[in-house]
Simulated scan of single mutants.
Amino acid sequence: MLMSDEFVARSLEEVRFWSRIMKEHSLFLKLGFRCEDTQLINEANQFFAVFEAIENRANAYPFESDPAVIRRFNEEVHNAVSYIWAFKRKVLGLILTCQLPGGNNFPLLVDHVSREANYFRNRLMELNLGRLEPLPDAIIDENVFFLRIMADHAKFISHLLDPSERKLVEQANNFSHEFDQLLFQAKDLDSMRPQSQTVPLLDQFLDQNRVSVKSLRDFKQTARDLIEACRIKSIIHPLLADHVFREAEHFLFIIDMFDNSLSGKSRE
C-alpha cells in the first residue's frame, strides 16, 4: 500500500508525463488523417484540448495536495484515457478494414499508441486502489511493455526516414532487431516466473536493458537534433522525434528506480 504523500507524488508524476503523451498522440494521429477525414480530425482536436487541460491541471497541483482530491482527479483522467483508447482502437479498425486508404497512420503506430493509453489507464487504477505490483513482477512486466515500445519506435524511425538516409535507416533497423531480441528474452524470463525472479537474474536483466536503452536514447537524441536543424531527410515531425526521446528517458528512469529498489532489497 502507498503512503498518502507517495500516492500523491506518483499520481502527479504519472499524469504529468502521460497526459502530455496522450495530447501529442492526438496531434500525430490528426496529421496522419486525410484532409477529407474531418470527423476524425475534429475528434483528435478535441482529445488534444482535453489532455492539454489535464496536463495543465496536473502541473498546477502541488505534491502536498489532499490525496482525496488527487484520487478524484485520477478518476477523471482515467475516464478521459478510456475515451481516447476507444478512439484509437476505432481508428485502427478503420485502417485495417481499408476504410482510410491513403492515410499516413501505420496500423502498428495506432496499436502502439492505444497500448500506451491502456498502460496509463491501468496505472491510474492501480494507484487509486493502492495495489501496485510486487517488485519482482513489476520489473518483468514494465520491461516487457517498454521493450516493445522501444522496438516499435525503432521501426517507426526506420520507415519515416527518407530511404536515401541509408546509414540512419540501417542504424534504426539494427535497433529494431536488438530490441526485438531483448523483448523475446524478457518474455522468456516472464514465462519462467516465479523461479526466474531471483535478485541476480533481475539485476542482470535490468543492467542489460539499461545499456541498450541508453544507446537507443542517444540515437533518438541525435536524430531529434538533426531533424530540428533540418540536416537530414525525413517525414518525421520534430515533436515526434522529441516524443520518442522522452519515452526512452522515462524508461531509463524506471529501470534506475527498479535497480535502486532491488539493491535495497538485496541488502535487507
Rank of each mutant, 00 (worst) to 15 (best):
F179D: 00
I149N: 05
A172K: 00
L132E: 12
F245Y: 09
R10G: 10
A241P: 06
E75R: 08
V169Q: 03
N128M: 14
K155I: 13
A68G: 05
R34N: 15
A80E: 04
A241L: 03
F145H: 13
A9R: 13
N42H: 11
A248L: 06
L160N: 08
S215N: 14
Q185P: 07
F251C: 03
K90W: 10
F51T: 02
S234Q: 05
A138M: 06
S4H: 11
N79A: 09
L40F: 14
N143R: 02
N42F: 14
E75Q: 13
M257I: 04
P194E: 06
S261P: 00
Y83V: 04
S263A: 09
V199D: 15
I140F: 01
N56Y: 09
I235R: 15
D218W: 01
F28K: 01
F48V: 04
D180L: 08
H153G: 03
K265N: 05
A58L: 08
Y83P: 00
T222R: 14
K30L: 14
P200A: 05
D256R: 08
K88S: 10
T198I: 08
L202E: 01
S26R: 01
F146Q: 03
R71Q: 11
E6H: 06
P200Y: 07
M257C: 04
R89C: 05
E76Y: 13
S176N: 11
I255A: 01
E268K: 15
Y61M: 05
K155D: 12
A49R: 10
E43Q: 09
F184L: 15
R71I: 11
Y83D: 05
V77L: 07
H153Q: 14
L189N: 01
I236G: 01
L100A: 03
C230Y: 11
D256T: 03
D152A: 05
E13F: 02
F33V: 04
T222E: 15
R57F: 12
